[in-house]
Design a binder for these strands. Structure first.
Lengths: 206, 206
DNA sequence: GTCTATATCTAGATAGAC
DNA sequence: GTCTATCTAGATATAGAC
């Protein structure tokens, strides 16, 4: 015979679970149908709640999206920046390759990003700020890594940092699009590895 | 004093104009808000028609989208494949650079493509077939060009054709996304030119 | 060819019972 | 914490007048 923990009532516990499940379901449905293309009612149904039951946890659809993005950041954010020691120079590209490998086992998170990145180009979209911050953050992180590598003699002196950074991000994004559309035709891991090899062949010094 | 042409009544002529204007307006609004994010009513209003007036020309919203895609293909399709003589070998990349330069003056067409490509990953989307065909066609065209160049000694013998093709397409797509989101931060033309230069540095023989 | 009017659905959000 | 019921708004599409 067991009792619920003292610090938290049984109903509250159940609420936490509902909320977490709703976020997971919303992630999946937003990934497949986009934000605008997914109704709160469908998220609620797949979560096992009524529409109002879901909206008890999130005051609005936009709040649900915010929770989804927050959770994505939590799961994903620390992968590059929060590792044991910072990835600098060419090691940053090893980190990106590991990220691509991980992404290729998580189509939902990739789909979520690709769909939202395109949808949220529009300034009025509720994820616009998040997408802008994502790109700015990634660009900054990779720029710092390459600059550091350059300062330590890992890159040739006239390597164009900005171009390397923007092109690398572009390749990752473009491969995701092709992979989602035709998974059997494109291996994100192999293509990105080949791209990094080409970068090294041209700009590596050490 | 002038008369309307005999073969076509004045009202029909006006109808053609309305239809064409509607397609142009829909292109712009789909580019900014996506297909799902744009209502027929808004297209109608900006065209200067009532909603039903617009639906006289297109039996459904999906039919309007089809007309938009058809017009995009007409304006854009012949740019690479319909030029004076076929672009083969490295010349194909010159053609792509010209296309990128042209695109960077047409944000609407770029936005339309990026939005729809992401939206239409979903198999049930009315533009799904079109997007699949677009990627398949581009890949085929570029593959043929590179294979031809290889057979004529323009590429090193072990150049990985598939990877070159997929990565080139990925770079174009990824740069479009970044450019739409932050136009002042990214020059599609400069970045793509640099990418092609890197390809040449590694795989050009001649 | 275009309009007004309307039918039908679906969406997001709120009120209040349990 | 969750539900039923309901409000309001907006969407696609059709009917029928001019």
């Amino acid at each position: 015979m067991s009792f619920p923990p003292v610090y938290r009532s049984r109903t509250e516990e159940s609420g936490e679970e509902s909320r977490a499940k709703a976020v997971a379901v919303a992630t999946e449905l937003f990934a497949l149908g986009g934000y605008k293309g997914t109704s709160v009612a469908r998220v609620a149904a797949k979560t096992g709640l009524s529409q109002s039951g879901l909206l008890h946890h999130f005051p609005s659809k936009a709040a649900l999206l915010a929770a989804v993005l927050e959770e994505r950041d939590r799961q994903d954010g620390d992968f590059l920046t929060g590792s044991a020691r910072p990835l600098l120079g060419w090691a940053a590209f090893d980190g990106l390759q590991a990220l691509v490998a991980r992404n290729s086992t998580r189509p939902h998170l990739v789909g979520l990003f690709v769909r939202l990145a395109a949808e949220a180009i529009e300034p009025a979209h509720p994820a616009h700020g998040w997408v802008q911050a994502h790109y700015a953050g990634t660009r900054r992180w990779l720029t710092d890594a390459v600059e550091h590598g350059k300062a330590h003699g890992e890159f040739v002196a006239d390597a164009p940092v900005g171009t390397i950074v923007r092109t690398t991000i572009a390749v990752m994004d473009g491969l995701q699009q092709q992979w989602l559309l035709q998974p059997e035709e494109v291996s994100m891991v192999a293509e990105f590895e080949a791209f990094v090899a080409t970068l090294r062949a041209r700009w590596a010094l050490l």
